[in-house]
Amino acid sequence: MIGRVDKHLSDNHLSDDELLALVDSDTADDDHLSQCGACRRRYGEFVATLELASRLPPTQWSALQREALVHGVRRRLRGRRTVHRPGWQPALGGALATGVLAVLLTLTTNLTIGSPGHVTVISSGSGLVAEAAESVHAPRVVSEDEFEEELDETEVAGMIETYLMETASADELMWELEELSDDQYYALLDE
């Protein structure tokens, strides 16, 4: 029972929470309730509210729907198993592709390595990472054409990003929003 003392005066009514605690415990056995008509009425309103909610029609879930759901789950699991590959397969594929690329790039760069300050391409576990290697020798002068070529790649990446941002479908947007925390999400709604 709730910790309440001396609520017998009519100007000292039960709070909503106290009334709801009584309703929630399925008991109307309370000294104050038996003596206070106003609280009894409010208690009755809460009980009536829940009674009305209880009268909402139950979900109709037929045997056919039951079977359809079981079948649906089974089908989805089968689909997942079909596309499932052993964990080593993608890793091996990635490693092979990286290896082939590395060999090709090594051969290519060896042909031009006479000049210091060359651009190296190194492979990482998750893909290829290009970085400009600072040579201890005198820096190579990057020609205007080469600079534009590098800039173009950056620009293209930026354009792709912009395109994705501007043309993302509603579903993609939902997907992004789903990643937000509750606080971030409600802050967004408030805006």
């Binding site: 109307a28 009894r40 009425r41 208690y43 009755g44 309103e45 809460f46 009980v47 009536a48 509210t49 009305l52 909610a53």
Partner: peptide
């Protein structure tokens, strides 16, 4: 909140307290 919404619709007016 449910009680307030139901009450606003006048659905609790004739309910008698137990």
């Amino acid at each position: 909140k449910v009680r307030a919404a139901i009450g606003a619709a006048g659905l609790l007016e004739d309910e008698e307290p137990s």
